[in-house]
Each structure stands twice: as structure tokens, then as C-alpha cells.
Amino acid sequence: MRIVVSGGGTGGHIYPALALIREIKKQVKEAEFLYIGTEQGLESTLVKREEIPFKTVHITGFKRKISPENLKTVWRFISGVSKSKAILREFKADVVIGTGGYVCGPVVYAASKMGIPTIIHEQNSVPGLTNKFLSKYVDKVATCFEEAASFFPKEKVVLTGNPRASEVLNQDGIKGRLSVGLKLKDPCVLIVGGSRGARPINDAVIAALPSLGKKPYQVLYVTGEAHYESVKKEVALVGNPSNVIIKPFVHNMPEVLTNMDLTVARAGATTLSELTSLGIPSILIPSPYVTNNHQEKNAQSLTTNGAAKMLLEKELDGTKLVEEIDTIMLQKEVLHNMKAASKKLGMPDAAIRLYDVMKEVVNKRKQQK
């Protein structure tokens, strides 16, 4: 089977794609892959690192306000469709899967017009413009949140979860804790603002350090590499409690995440899929700087189901952060109930589910022929 995967721009689109590819390789040894992205996007680095054949098309997104740039985007889309058709024809693709980002537009659209089976995967509770557009042309739409279904043709939607969720299972949590200097017996809270960190979260944690130092739990605080040096200077002024370990970045996050009791984080789709797969409760601080405010909608989904508490960035300060953490960590029944609710939402078999959807689409198209 010859499979084309396309997704780009952010890790939220790329990591699920790579997780799916790894799962299919386990299931179908002879499967061949081609990844189509952009040269400027993060995918050009991450995909090449995985030694997956990689081709590019040039595309940009539409401006939400009237702009001359949109005319250029239309032209780039038309050119991208033409180039995508040539790539797909040369590769002899059996199926095309889009995991989000502008690059999926011309690639998946071209495949649908060529009669190649197509699937898009939507990670968020509120889809972007590209997936809304493509949903009219693809065979199936795989989703991670039930709330996303209302944006797509009902008959095409399948709830699969995020393939990334499958990759955090069966990790060595003890090894993960020891690798970052955490004690094995004491409960632990992970505070992280994403791979690059988040200044408002860092400010709140620094203000909270004196109070956190008196707690019966330990804290792993990941600043993001871009903020680490400035955070260290500020921490030097207030003091670093012995139960708070500060790191710029954690390279083995799946291992470390496995043994956490509570996580304070943004509400990106990949993060939430990992947390629910492991049954970890969370305090979610949605980024207000994302399209359609989708992180707040993602967080609301978990909050409604009792798996998380949401703290808006505009309400965030050191005192409020500690209060929210204590409400969960110092009440065993609350912590237990939130863990159970998180686990109930998890879809650890998401990669297999999406692979099964792919097989169904391909087989159905073969039967129609």
C-alpha cells in the first residue's frame, strides 16, 4: 500500500501524522509512505528526521480580513493542486490522509479530484478553514472531540481520537521521574507552557514559588528554552524551593508524563490526547492567541466532563494558580474522581482506529470499482 500523508505548520498537525505512520508501519510491513508538506514549516525538519520521503508544495493561508494577499493565496492554491497531482501520480498513491494545516488544502483536494481515497484528521474541537473546506470532498473526517462533528457532513464523521495518544502508553514512569530528579514516592505536579514555554504561566509560577515550597507535593516546572535564562534570574531573587525542579525543556516527556498526578498546561489537542490517554487530571490555561479560540473550546470539553479545571490567562496569577492546584492535590477524592474522568475520555487506541478508517475507505473504493 502506498500512503501519502500531509500536515504542517505546527507540531499539533505533524506529531499525529508521524504517530499514525509509525502505527501503520507496525501493521503493514510493506507499506510505503510519502509526506507532503512545505519547505518553511516545522514538518520539513521533523519528517526528514524520521527519514520519511518528503516533497513540498508552496501554499499560504487566507487572511480573515479582505486583503490583496488572498489573491496570491488563490493562485498558490491552484498551483499547489497542479503540483500535488503530479506528485500523487508519480507516487501512485492508494490513499491520502491530511492531518491539518494549509498544505493539506491543495494536496487532499487534488487527491479527491483524482479519485484517490481521502481522509482528513481534525485534532481540535473547532476546526480550521482548511478542514472545513476539505470536508466537502473527502471520504471520511476523523475527529478527536465529539464537539467537532457539528462542523462536518454527519455521514462522514468518525470519532477516532488523536494517534499521538497511543505513543505515551507503556512508558517507564520510574525512569522518567528519575531522569529529571524527582522523588519516586512524593506526588508530583507538572507545569509546562508548551515546547517554547509561555510567559504568563512563567510569571505566575515565579510568583507562586514561596508558597509552592511549603507544599507536600513536588513540582516539575518546564519554562521553555526561550525563557529559561530570564526565569533563572528571577528565581534567584525569590529562591528555588527544594521541592520545585526547574527545567528548560524535557526531551523524554512521554516517560516523564506517565507518572504525574496533575498537569498544568495549555490546551492544545495533542497535549489533551496524551493526558486523557494516561488518565491525568489537568488545570488548563488555554492560549488566547490561537485561531477561533479553539484551545478554550478544547479545555471546556474536558472541564465539562470533570477531567480538568480551566483557568483563563487573564485570571492567572501566582495565588490563583496555587489555589487551583491545592484544590485538586490536597483533596484525595477530587484527585481520584478527576483521574477517573480523564481516563474515561482517553482513546489510547486512536492510531489503530484511524488506521481502521483508512482501510475501510480504501476497501470501499475498491469494491465500487
Results as ranks from 00 to 15, higher is better:
residue 120 I to T: 02
residue 210 P to I: 01
residue 60 T to D: 15
residue 343 K to F: 12
residue 169 L to K: 14
residue 54 F to D: 01
residue 174 I to L: 09
residue 31 A to H: 02
residue 204 A to I: 01
residue 165 A to R: 04
residue 72 K to T: 10
residue 3 I to Y: 03
residue 188 C to S: 15
residue 205 V to H: 04
residue 194 G to A: 08
residue 328 I to C: 14
residue 29 K to L: 13
residue 318 G to C: 01
residue 304 T to Q: 13
residue 209 L to D: 04
residue 11 G to P: 01
residue 117 P to I: 09
residue 82 S to K: 15
residue 276 T to N: 05
residue 48 K to Q: 14
residue 341 A to F: 11
residue 103 V to T: 14
residue 179 S to Y: 09
residue 143 T to P: 10
residue 303 T to K: 15
residue 86 A to H: 06
residue 336 H to A: 12
residue 324 E to P: 00
residue 272 L to F: 07
residue 79 S to Q: 15
residue 159 L to T: 10
residue 225 E to S: 15
residue 326 D to M: 12
residue 218 Q to F: 04
residue 139 D to C: 04
residue 243 N to C: 02
residue 29 K to C: 04
residue 197 G to L: 08
residue 134 L to H: 10
residue 170 N to Y: 13
residue 24 I to S: 02
residue 36 I to W: 06
residue 49 R to L: 12
residue 144 C to G: 13
residue 274 E to C: 11
residue 315 E to P: 01
residue 9 G to H: 07
residue 47 V to G: 11
residue 123 Q to T: 12
residue 130 T to V: 14
residue 135 S to D: 06
residue 100 G to F: 12
residue 14 I to R: 01
residue 361 V to I: 08
residue 39 E to D: 13
residue 37 G to A: 07
residue 191 I to R: 01
residue 213 G to V: 03
residue 335 L to S: 14
residue 163 P to Q: 08
residue 359 K to C: 15
residue 263 T to C: 13
residue 173 G to R: 10
residue 347 M to N: 10
residue 36 I to C: 04
residue 358 M to S: 04
residue 139 D to M: 03
residue 120 I to Q: 09
residue 257 L to G: 05
residue 42 L to Y: 00
residue 13 H to A: 08
residue 354 L to C: 05
residue 51 E to T: 04
residue 160 T to D: 03
residue 1 M to G: 07
residue 368 Q to E: 15
residue 182 L to A: 11
residue 366 K to V: 08
residue 135 S to E: 02
residue 324 E to N: 12
residue 122 E to F: 05
residue 60 T to H: 14
residue 273 S to A: 15
residue 99 T to R: 00
residue 56 T to W: 06
residue 139 D to G: 11
residue 227 H to G: 01
residue 226 A to D: 13
residue 4 V to N: 01
residue 117 P to Y: 12
residue 121 H to D: 04
residue 272 L to Q: 11
residue 321 L to Y: 09
residue 49 R to T: 13
residue 236 A to W: 03
residue 73 T to M: 08
residue 85 K to M: 14
residue 138 V to L: 03
residue 361 V to M: 06
residue 258 T to W: 11
residue 46 L to H: 07
residue 204 A to C: 00
residue 44 S to D: 05
residue 183 K to S: 13
residue 282 S to I: 02
residue 257 L to Y: 03
residue 183 K to G: 08
residue 208 A to C: 08
residue 283 I to E: 06
